[in-house]
Simulated scan of single mutants.
Amino acid sequence: MIAAAAVFFPIVGASGASAEPPALRVPVDCALGGTCSIQHYVDTKAGDGARDYRCGRQSYDGHEGTDIRVPTVAEMHDGVPVLAAAPGRVKALRDGMPDAFKDQLAEGVLTNHEAGNGVVVAHGDGWVTQYSHLRLGSIAVAPGDTVRAGEQLGTIGLSGNTEFPHLEFEVRHNGAVVDPFTGARKGAGCKAGGAGLWTARARERLAYEPGGLLAAGFARRKVSARDVVAGRVKAVRVAPGAKAVVFYALTRGLRAGDRERIVLRGPDGTVLAKDTNALSDASAQRIRYIGTRTPDGPARAYTARYTVTRGNGDERQPVVDVRRELSVR
């Protein structure tokens, strides 16, 4: 499992439990389902274990926000704007924490700073939104600023307690965590229902996606999920003298029972390697690869296909279906 925790910046909220909640827009400027995707939802389950608002497993125990990620640090460096989800006033912020994977940080750096760089916006009547794990130096507002819905606050980063570049978006009312997809308080259960807090357009853009592809490509050796997310795969690209060709696929949100199939073919369509697998456990982030040795140097072209299906018997539906081609020159 991968997890990214955030700690709320403490501020004093106003009272007013009967007040109307803010209508929330999508808090990032990116193509959901393309450039970015939802990795985790609020944990709706009280007690041990975790369930997202659709009773799926795209959450982890105690998670309080919605994690909207980009696949790798390359997209982070391109700059993905984080936007105010509703009008309000900046009540608190933090900057100065480096963009780094949590295991790269010195001991004690994360103490009381798990959320990394971030911004808290108050919307009145006790409603607050928090934007965590922002990129170092990207914050574009100051305490006391009035912000419009859609105004840029910063960009997606890798700061704080995290293993992938993302925004963790949290909603609170009078200090209690609220799931923006249902409008219910955290722990109310995945069948709590409710229209949620998103605008109609935002809800459409944030449609539930039970798993998907993050990245896929070729390398000259086996690569790890960290290699892909950190952008190190470019350093192991396939060149004419390579002794192996490896195809990899990085996925998110796979479930127990999902079936993987991966095939690598040579220039004439000959199958060089293939494998199938049924997952025994859910996987928040998973790397899958297959390869072939090339003692005399690689051939000029390769084709790989990776699929994941879900369901029972003949009712299986595609979750991932990706094809990649490689030309070696």
Rank of each mutant, 00 (worst) to 15 (best):
T111L: 15
R316V: 01
E315W: 11
F181C: 01
L254M: 08
R69G: 02
D275E: 12
L264N: 05
R51T: 14
F8N: 09
G34P: 03
C30S: 10
C36H: 00
V121I: 10
A273P: 08
P71S: 05
Y41H: 05
A219C: 04
P318C: 05
F8Y: 14
M76A: 01
T44P: 04
R25F: 10
G291Q: 01
G157D: 00
T270S: 13
Y302Q: 07
Q39I: 10
T129P: 01
N174V: 13
R255K: 07
G253E: 00
G269V: 12
A84C: 08
A207M: 09
F181M: 00
F169W: 06
L32G: 01
G183E: 04
R25T: 14
A140E: 08
I38Q: 01
R89I: 14
E151A: 05
P27Q: 01
Q130N: 09
D78G: 09
D275N: 13
A4W: 09
D67K: 08
V328S: 04
L264G: 02
D67L: 12
A200I: 12
P143K: 12
G34D: 14
V246Y: 00
Y53E: 00
H77T: 07
L24R: 06
G13W: 15
D48N: 15
A84R: 04
A188Q: 07
P98G: 09
L326H: 06
D296K: 10
S283Y: 10
A299P: 12
V223N: 02
G124W: 05
A19P: 11
R265L: 09
H77E: 11
C55K: 06
T199E: 13
L279I: 15
Q58F: 08
A188W: 03
A256S: 13
T309V: 08
V80T: 09
F218A: 03
R185Q: 13
L250Y: 06
A273Q: 14
H113K: 15
R25S: 13
E315Y: 12
I2N: 10
P87R: 15
H133Y: 04
T182R: 02
G88A: 12
V90H: 06
I287Y: 06
R25E: 12
G34T: 13
V263G: 04
P87L: 13
A85H: 07
A50N: 08
G231L: 03
A84L: 09
N277G: 12
I287M: 08
P10K: 07
A215S: 11
T44C: 07
H173W: 07
L214Y: 04
S138T: 06
G269W: 10
A284L: 14
R54C: 12
F9Y: 15
F9P: 06
G257D: 04
G194C: 04
